[in-house]
Amino acid sequence: MKCDVKPIEVTWFPGCSMKTSAMENHESFKIFCEAIGIRLIELPDWNCCGSSSAHSIDQELAIDLVARNLALAPSGRPILTACPSCTLRFKEAHHHLMESSEARIRFRKQWGVPFDPAKKVMHFFELIDGMDISAFTPGKKPLAGLTYAPYYGCMLARPPKLRNQKNFHGLLEKILGTLGAKAVDWKGHNKCCGTFLSVARPEATTEVVNAIVQSGLDSGAECLITACAMCQLNLEIRCNLKDQIPVLHFSEILTLALGKGKNTDQWFKRHLVDPKPLLAAKGLI
């Protein structure tokens, strides 16, 4: 892939986490996308996808909340998500609408437009899988010397009905590897961060989070890198180990690797474990 390609336009669905508690994730994500030729057009007036809560207590509402966004989205371009939870909710709703004619009739009644199967949701991983990001840093390995633990949490797990769709195990390692970073072998990569139990059962979440971070430490990682804003938050707020390592967003490290970081102090002051000493030592800031 060359650097001078025409931008790909996508409808961008940031979701609540990236828009609020993980603004540093959103800012770096936007810069990175622009740098690699992806034009994000934020879906006007999008609403929350319902997250685990709508899904937990009212299945129909969970579909309806996604449906409004699907109805609002313009035809002809994919809907891009980066939050794994939003992605799953969108995929499930889309799948349900594909399967059930009743659901499609209801959709039309509710929103005044027919359900358009072509308005598919695409996770950021799907978009960059197969791209050679190192083409944007010719002749350089900007992440050389960085040893990290790739953390996916539950984002690659899915229900049996979506089992035959493609998946992206190894994507973090592949992309960050082309930029020179070294992934450790460790036990934590697919362990769930606890999501809402962080609020409702904090002690149990701390137990789980500590085990993940400890496993990263034991394997010699200097930081954890995750593509989920919710994971990043839980790993930071619920960890109470004496020794901790920074937890970086995938988008932050990608943007830094491309040398495009702007106002990064604003990103890093939102982290509870300061990543600046590490990033400075690696010459990334």
Partner: peptide, 18 residues
């Protein structure tokens, strides 16, 4: 836990977002 989910949904109902 039920109350937690209700709070999330309440927020979506009031603002459209959480």
């Amino acid at each position: 836990i039920y109350n937690f989910h209700k709070e999330i949904l309440g927020s979506i109902k009031r603002y459209g977002r959480t």
